Amino acid sequence: RALPCPAHVVFRYQAGREDELTITEGEWLEVIEEGDADEWVKARNQHGEVGFVPERYLNFPD
């Protein structure tokens, strides 16, 4: 997929490290980079905060 792209959060995730982003179910993010580890992506939330989130917690519109 082309980046950046929108993504809808389907599961809540609490950041466990400083470089991760806490996300809430129902929130929209902008995915800006593929992650440095499998199944992680770097995203920006509506407040401009950036961090890594688990890709499987997101839904990408067609």
Rank of each mutant, 00 (worst) to 15 (best):
A2I: 15
L58C: 04
P4S: 07
E18S: 10
G51C: 00
D19A: 15
R56E: 14
C5K: 04
R44Y: 03
Q46C: 12
F11R: 12
A2W: 09
W28N: 12
E27D: 11
L3C: 10
V41I: 06
A2R: 14
D36S: 11
G35F: 09
A7V: 05
E33K: 06
G16Y: 15
L3W: 04
E27G: 00
V9S: 02
H47F: 07
F52Q: 07
E34R: 12
C5L: 04
W40P: 02
R12M: 11
Q14C: 05
V10C: 12
L3G: 03
L29P: 02
A37Q: 14
C5H: 09
D19K: 11
A2T: 15
R12G: 14
A7N: 04
R12T: 13
L3D: 04
H47L: 13
Y57E: 03
K42R: 08
V41M: 08
A15P: 05
H8K: 07
D62A: 13
V31Y: 05
E33T: 06
N59T: 13
P6K: 08
G26K: 05
N59L: 09
R56P: 09
A43E: 01
Y13K: 09
E49V: 09
V10K: 10
A7T: 01
P6V: 07
A7D: 00
E33C: 11
L29A: 02
N59M: 10
V53Q: 03
E39T: 13
V31N: 00
L3F: 14
L3T: 08
T22D: 10
E39D: 07
A2G: 15
Y57T: 14
P4T: 09
A15R: 08
G48Q: 03
E33D: 09
C5P: 01
P54I: 05
V53C: 07
I32A: 01
I32G: 02
E30W: 08
Q46E: 11
V9F: 01
E33L: 05
D62S: 13
W28V: 15
V50S: 09
L3V: 05
Q46V: 10
N45K: 05
P54F: 06
Q46H: 09
F60W: 11
A43I: 06
P54K: 11
R1Y: 10
Q46D: 08
R1W: 04
T22P: 02
V9P: 02
V10M: 13
E55L: 14
D38W: 09
G51Y: 02
A37F: 12
E34P: 10
R56N: 14
E34N: 12
Q46F: 08
G26S: 04
G35I: 07
V31H: 02
R44G: 01
E27I: 04
A43K: 02
E27T: 04
D36W: 13
V50Q: 10
E49Y: 05
G48N: 09
R12Y: 14
A7C: 05
D19T: 14
D38I: 11
F11G: 15
V31T: 02
V9L: 01
K42Y: 05
Q46T: 12
L21M: 08
N59I: 11
L58P: 00
K42N: 03
A43N: 02
R12F: 12
F11M: 15
E33P: 02
D38N: 12
E27R: 02
V41N: 00
P6H: 12
N59C: 12
V31K: 01
D19L: 11
N45T: 05
R1V: 04
F60D: 02
P4H: 04
P61A: 12
E30C: 06
R12L: 07
E25A: 09
V41L: 08
F52G: 04
N59G: 10
R56D: 11
L29N: 03
L58G: 02
P61N: 12
F60K: 04
E30Y: 07
P6E: 06
H47S: 14
E33R: 06
H47A: 15
Q14I: 07
L3P: 07
F60Q: 02
C5F: 06
H8T: 08
N45H: 09
A43Q: 01
V53T: 01
I23A: 02
T22H: 04
E27K: 05
L29Q: 02
V10Y: 10
V53K: 00
N59V: 11
F11K: 13
N59S: 12
E27C: 02
F52D: 05
Y13L: 03
Y57K: 07
A7Y: 04
Q46M: 10
G48C: 07
G51R: 01
L21S: 04
F52P: 01
G16H: 12
Q46G: 11
E39V: 08
R1N: 13
G48F: 06
G16V: 15
E55F: 09
V41E: 00
H8F: 03
V53S: 00
E25W: 05
V9T: 04
H47W: 08
T24D: 15
D36R: 12
L3E: 04
L3I: 11
Q14N: 13
I23M: 07
R44I: 12
E34T: 11
P6Q: 08
Q14T: 08
P6S: 06
I23R: 02
D38T: 10
D36H: 14
G51V: 01
G51D: 02
V53R: 03
Y13V: 02
N45R: 00
W28D: 11
A43F: 02
P61Q: 14
D19I: 10
E27P: 01
P61W: 09
